[in-house]
Deep mutational scan, measured.
Amino acid sequence: MAAGGDHGSPDSYRSPLASRYASPEMCFVFSDRYKFRTWRQLWLWLAEAEQTLGLPITDEQIQEMKSNLENIDFKMAAEEEKRLRHDVMAHVHTFGHCCPKAAGIIHLGATSCYVGDNTDLIILRNALDLLLPKLARVISRLADFAKERASLPTLGFTHFQPAQLTTVGKRCCLWIQDLCMDLQNLKRVRDDLRFRGVKGTTGTQASFLQLFEGDDHKVEQLDKMVTEKAGFKRAFIITGQTYTRKVDIEVLSVLASLGASVHKICTDIRLLANLKEMEEPFEKQQIGSSAMPYKRNPMRSERCCSLARHLMTLVMDPLQTASVQWFERTLDDSANRRICLAEAFLTADTILNTLQNISEGLVVYPKVIERRIRQELPFMATENIIMAMVKAGGSRQDCHEKIRVLSQQAASVVKQEGGDNDLIERIQVDAYFSPIHSQLDHLLDPSSFTGRASQQVQRFLEEEVYPLLKPYESVMKVKAELCL
C-alpha cells in the first residue's frame, strides 16, 4: 500500500493539533497551500530580480507567473513527485505547466533550498508574528487579574506546605514575570531571523556568478533584492546548502521555554482548584465526569500541561538535527523538520489560546482563602504575639514557653481530632496574655502579614508589564474561544 493518505478522510490519521486544537490561522501558515504558494512567490521574486539585473526574462513571463501564483494543481504535483521522487522539481514542473512561456526560467540558477529553506524562514517569521500578540493578550488578562487582587491576602506555599502570606495578585505576578520573559525572547528570536537568500547549491553562489558572467556586484544585488522582497532586513552571508540548523534550535528553545512557563502556571491553577481557592472557567453544560456528576475538573489547565510537556520535548529534535548536518548538509534534517517545526508552533498556539481562555474567566473564592488563612495564621502570628507581650512588660522566655504549650495543644486538636485551630481562643482565655487581649485582632490582621506584596504588584505592572504590552494595544480586544 502506498504511503500517505487522504487526510480529510475519517479513515486516515490526522494530527489532533490540526484537527482538534490549533487555530485556523496557525494551521494555514503550515498548510501545503501556504507552503507551495510561497515557493511560487519566491520563484517570481527571483525572476523579477534577475530581470532587473539584466537576464533575458520578459515582462510577459513575469506576468504569467504572477497570474498563476494561486493556480496550484495539487493532484498534478503529487503525481509528479511520485514520478520524480523530488518535491521541488515536482512543483517546478507543475508551475511550468500553467506558465508555459515562463517554464524555462522558473528556478533559474537556484537549488531546492532556495524555495525550501527560504519558505521555512518566512513561515517561522509569520508563525512567530501570530504567537506574539496571543502571548501579549494572556499577559494582559493576567495583569488585569493581578491588579484587581493585588491586596487580597492568601496563604503562600513553599514545598506545598503553608508559608508566609502573600497576595493573590502577587502570586499571579510570578506567572506574568515568566511570560514577559517569554514574550521578550519570542520577539528577540523573531527579529534575529535572517533570510537564507540566493546562495546556490553549497552556499557559494557559483551558479549565479556564472549567470551574471562573473559580476560579483550583481550577485550581491540579486541576494539583497530577493531578501528585501521577502520582507527581511538581512540575509546570511555564510550558508551551506541550507541555512544553519542552529536557527531551528533557537526558535524551538524559546517555544519550549514558553511551554515550561505555561505548565507551571496551569499546575498552580490545578492545585488551587483542589484547594477550592480558584477555578478555571466551567461552562453551564460542561460535564466533569461521566460517573461523578459533582466533579469540576480543571480540564483546560490539564490540557495545557499535557501539550506543554510535548512542546518542551520537541527542542531535542533540532538539537540532534543540527549535530548531524555533515559538511554542507545531509538530508537527516528533512523529514524531522517537516514534523517538529509545525508541531512546535501548533502546540504553542494551542496552549496560548487555551491559557487566554482560562485567564479571561478565572474565578476566585475569597471566603475559602480566608478560612485557610484562619487555619494557619495563628501559628504564624506567634512571633508577633511574643513581641507584643514583651512590649507590655512580659518575659520573652516565659511567653515563648506559654505559646509553645498552647500551640501544641491547638495542633493536637487540628491533627488528632480534625478540629479547627483554636490557638487564639486559648490565648484569649489565658490570664497571662490579658495585657494584649485587646491587640489580638490587630495582630491577626492578614494584611499585616503580606509585606509589600501589593506595592510590588503595582510597581511591576507599571514599570515592566504595561510598557512591554504597549506595541500590542491594537490587538488586545480579541477574545479566545474554545470549541473543545
Results as ranks from 00 to 15, higher is better:
I369P: 12
I339M: 10
K246G: 09
I106G: 05
S253V: 03
I287C: 09
E64T: 12
S140A: 02
Q397C: 14
L17M: 13
S474W: 15
G393K: 11
W326K: 02
I386S: 07
F236L: 09
S448H: 13
L461F: 03
L258W: 05
L469F: 02
S67Y: 07
D445N: 05
Y114L: 13
N357F: 15
F433V: 07
E463R: 09
D420P: 12
E279F: 04
S112H: 10
L121H: 02
P293L: 11
R309V: 07
S12Y: 15
R371L: 09
N118D: 03
F30W: 01
N384C: 15
I238H: 15
R296S: 10
E383L: 07
S151E: 07
M387I: 14
R37Y: 14
S323H: 08
L142K: 13
T330I: 12
L252H: 09
D215G: 12
G288R: 10
H97R: 07
L255P: 03
I339Y: 01
L258S: 11
I237K: 13
E250L: 13
P16I: 15
L444C: 14
R372M: 04
A150Q: 15
L193E: 08
R190M: 10
V390S: 01
F160N: 00
A273Y: 05
G203Q: 10
R190E: 00
L132H: 09
V168R: 09
V368I: 15
W43Q: 13
Q205G: 04
P162I: 06
Q416V: 08
Q286Y: 13
A90Y: 13
C113E: 06
S438E: 00
D248H: 15
Q61T: 13
S140N: 08
F145Q: 10
T94M: 00
S334V: 08
V262F: 13
Q205W: 07
R374V: 13
L152E: 04
I351E: 12
H437V: 05
V457I: 10
D191N: 14
A110P: 03
D268G: 15
S261L: 09
G393H: 00
E70V: 13
T202G: 05
K224M: 08
D215A: 07
K470M: 10
W175I: 00
D333A: 15
Y294W: 07
D144W: 04
S253G: 13
E50K: 01
E48A: 03
N185K: 09
G361H: 14
A110Y: 06
